[in-house]
Amino acid sequence: MTLFVFGSAIADFVFRMPNLPRPGETVLGEAGPALQGGKGLNQAIAAARDGGEVRFVGCVGRDPNGALLRAAAIEAGVDVSALREMEAATGLACVCVDAEGRNQIAVSIGANLLARAAQIEAIPPGATLLMQMEVRPDENAALIARGRAAGARVLLNLAPAGALPPEALRGLDLLILNESEAAWIGARLGHPPEAGSLQAALGIGIVVTQGERGVTAVTEDGALHIPAHRVRAVDTTGAGDAWCGVLAASLDRGMPLEAAMRRATAAGALACTKPGAGPAMPHASEIDALLASFRGAISE
């Protein structure tokens, strides 16, 4: 099968500091070199490191940051034949991380606004499409419609929260949300933010990630809850992207939803144990080892 990830590529500048700044406050910290990031690229790297056959579709600038992001994708085994270089600045992010691994992120979206669904020339039946919200919403809506018509599996991570027409959302197989995103869309729909309520409102599969409390999914087949793995968090920035990328890769290779969610939950936990976003995406061997240790602990 083939997994298309349509989304953003952003160069991350990570600032480590004792506490996150409050409004009007300056906090001194240390910054490292630019790292690969952007929800789209992070998720593509996560999927590829888990063994997925991944094509990343997006835009970067003709600048050093764009070259860095392209090289990182290639190193991870991602197909970048549909990654375009544009006469615009590559997207940038300032990521502030405190001593407990919590983060605040500011993003300049840059060339990502030039990404177009038409960069995917053909969608094979049975392919998987994974999208986020750091590109133009109308391009996501166009790709959802094309994916549905082609018989693809269509997933959207509504991050950051943004508006899409209800008819576009109803074309999804899975809508993936964290708790704040679930609250945002629930308010717009006039429904409680729980997965079951949102599933009833939209008629599609809903996944809500809940941090240390695990993740809940509700589809037409019923509800699933997967507990979180206990890890020492260093930086939570890429956890959601690791979760989404590995879920998509697992589903694309035919894994049932529950098993795919368990694998994704392990990947999200591992991403919290390393600094950065793209560089923290775990490899398949690491995910396998954590799942094996979890199963061993249950059997004892």
Rank of each mutant, 00 (worst) to 15 (best):
T2L: 13
F6E: 11
F13R: 13
F15A: 14
F15N: 04
R16G: 00
N19V: 05
R22Y: 07
E25T: 01
E25Q: 15
V27I: 08
E30H: 14
A31D: 07
G40N: 08
D50V: 01
E53S: 14
V54D: 02
A67C: 00
L68G: 14
A71R: 09
A73S: 07
E75Y: 01
E75F: 01
V78T: 04
V78E: 04
A82E: 05
D98T: 00
A99M: 00
A99Y: 00
E100Y: 01
R102K: 04
R102W: 00
A106F: 14
S108N: 13
A111C: 04
A111M: 05
N112W: 12
L114V: 01
A115H: 12
A115L: 13
A117V: 05
A118T: 15
Q119D: 11
Q119Y: 11
I120W: 03
A127I: 00
L129V: 09
L130M: 15
D138E: 14
D138C: 14
E139D: 10
A141N: 14
A142W: 02
R148W: 07
A150E: 07
G151H: 11
G151D: 06
N157V: 06
L158D: 06
P160Y: 10
P165W: 13
E167I: 03
A168L: 06
G171A: 05
D173W: 08
S180D: 12
A183R: 15
G186S: 12
L189T: 01
L189C: 11
H191I: 00
P193V: 05
T209A: 08
E212M: 01
D221P: 03
G222P: 10
H225F: 11
I226K: 06
I226E: 14
A228T: 00
V231N: 02
V231R: 02
G238F: 00
A239D: 04
A239L: 03
D241T: 00
L251T: 06
E258S: 15
T265W: 02
A267N: 09
G268R: 06
A269M: 00
T273N: 06
A277Q: 06
A277R: 08
I287T: 08
I287M: 05
F294T: 15
F294Y: 09
I298G: 00
S299H: 03
